[in-house]
Design a binder for these strands. Structure first.
Lengths: 343, 343
DNA sequence: CCCTTTAATTGAAGCGCTTCAATTAAAAAT
DNA sequence: ATTTTTAATTGAAGCGCTTCAATTAAAGGG
């Protein structure tokens, strides 16, 4: 493969000049540039990336570490996220390094994946997803002054850039809508409290109730345990609610997979969604619209989130001043046919 | 950040020795090794990856270029594939570079993404997905003697490693099953002929008919056009079939998205799936089991495919002899409740 | 105890680029 | 025509690692 040295020799200039036609074309005389460019084409020369990276001490690469539990292997969520991230990377000429770790990996090991990338200078920045309470990864990245951006907020008192979807808002809207339909007892099936997004959503549920002057009843809230199959968990969750003395006639479910289980459970119980029980699903998986009845959902702007994440991170890496690196996007309640008037 | 030079100085050995404790530990005396290791830990030294890559002239990185049309942004398929690929990468200590290109990008541009990776030596190998008829990418990669593996087969007479799911077998099984139920007129809604997988599946459909002594009727086959919204396409497709003089009472649909549209179309037409019309979906999206009725599907071992792809590619890169680099995995017919006896 | 093997370590030469001070060429000013 | 200014080019010094021939240290053999 041709090197910059070959190009220099053939076009009878120094390698410095060749480098300049590639990186600072305005610095070299037009005719020289032309000549070099021709040789480059003739030799099909492409600068070696490792060499360039070493020399510049940067890689124009960011990393995303995917939490691949069995659970989110299935989440269409991530496909949209990736689409957004890779699109911006492509536009801004950055590369994306993707690696996975299973969520049942212990925290230390997970952190070491991040550390490895950072310390071997394999990437210029990182995207962190699904922060937990007191997230070790965030602490580490702040302490070591890395470039990174988080999908989601944290409860640690450190400042860092993030993009998040306002789960609290989404949930309160869901409650408001159900309240509009006359519901007073609204069930809630949520994800593990360890994740920040779970907390925000639950908080939104409570705030929503409060806004509608509905008293919070802890008996109506079920929290699914981590490591459980989500579909099964949803099924168990809804049955628990339906077996209450005073079962709710409406339920909000915090996640697509859970909702699948919930629907299954409702049917098994002999009830019909949108008839005997109203259902809202947080996150609008594409199949929701195709169910019978179509499921009222809270749609998250995931693709946009992916774009924002990579945009902020890349700007940060490039040292561009960022006006706002705390971005809270609003989800949207998509009303379909899975909720009906109370009574 | 500490460099190998710092480590050498602090542990009073040459940088060569430090390099050896990292890469050929058996070559250095135990006590020296211990001492160096301690310094490495103390300094939190991690070899700079760019330097290592440059020196070794390899990157231990493979690339996957994702075809992100609006279409497969939604395909859960790819999430599973990625899970498999990243898992093996993790195990074998390889990195994965992910980039996307929209399918409406023209072929030349798409090829240039591949060329860029290859020629700048950014990666040691590539995974190519969804080959088309006379796929330019494959030709290029063979000609330039690159390490690569294809998800799918090709119709060009070049030898290259691939992993594929036997779409032909899957389709013929679907036909056989429907024939068992007494169906003679079986509709087929397929994806664009330009993709190899479409051809294999259609071929399997025809072969299946042949095996069952059913005559092939071109009127029962609709091919969706590329660039079309798949759900809509499915809907149009099924309506076209239902409006035939002698409409089929069973239909096989080649893809999840198409199937969503088909179900929609069937309902709009006033028919019920699994009652007025039998339906088989090729590819078993997770929601299929949750539909009412649950959809009989042909399940593809996608996760395994991802694992095989990366395993073969990495072995190839490492120069390991591969027993078999043409792997055809069998899909499986999952019988649920969307098909009923003819009549 | 000296000589031969073998083990351990060193030093320097790459790997292919970028960067920048220093040099040379060309243009503008006097 | 000479000096000053500006533009273009060069050369060499990194960037941080690996590799390997050459050297030195340790071990084994008689």
């Amino acid at each position: 493969m041709a090197t910059i040295f070959d190009v220099a020799r053939m076009s009878k200039v120094s390698i410095g000049t060749v480098s300049n036609v590639l990186n600072n074309p305005e610095k070299v005389k037009t005719e020289t540039r032309q000549r070099v460019l021709e040789v480059i084409k003739a030799l099909n020369f492409h600068p070696n990336l490792s060499a360039r990276n070493l020399s510049r001490l940067r890689t124009d690469t960011i990393a995303l570490i995917f939490p691949f539990s069995k659970r989110n292997r299935m989440e269409p969520y991530y496909t949209y996220l990736l689409a957004g991230i890779t699109e911006i990377c492509f536009q801004m000429n950055f590369k994306l390094l993707l690696s996975s770790c299973t969520t049942n990996i212990n925290e230390k090991e997970e952190l070491s994946i991040y550390a490895e990338y950072v310390e071997s200078q394999a990437v210029d920045g990182l995207i962190v997803t699904t922060p937990k309470s007191c997230d070790e990864r965030i602490k580490f990245l702040v302490e070591t002054k890395q470039n990174f951006v988080v999908l989601g907020r944290s409860n640690i008192s450190l400042d860092f850039p993030w993009v998040d979807i306002d789960g609290s808002y989404g949930m309160s809207e869901a409650v408001r809508y159900l309240s509009t339909l006359g519901h007073k007892r609204i069930g809630y099936i949520g994800t593990p409290n360890i994740f920040m997004f779970s907390r925000h959503r639950l908080e939104g549920y409570e705030r929503g109730l409060n806004n509608c002057n509905i008293e919070f009843d802890p008996e109506l809230v079920v929290e699914v345990s981590i490591n459980e199959d989500e579909v099964e968990a949803g099924e168990k969750g809804i049955l628990q609610l339906l077996r209450l003395n005073l079962p709710p006639k409406a339920v909000i479910v915090s996640g697509n997979q859970l909702a699948l289980g919930v629907i299954k459970g409702i049917n098994k119980f002999g009830y019909a969604v949108g008839k005997d029980i109203s259902l809202i699903c947080f996150d609008d998986a594409e199949w929701n619209v195709h169910f019978n009845p179509p499921i009222t959902s809270i749609r998250q702007p995931i693709y946009e989130t992916g774009k924002m994440l990579s945009k902020i991170l890349i700007q940060q890496i490039k040292g561009v001043k960022i006006k706002d690196s705390h971005i809270l996007l609003k989800p949207e309640l998509i009303i379909r046919e899975s909720c009906k008037k109370y009574g």
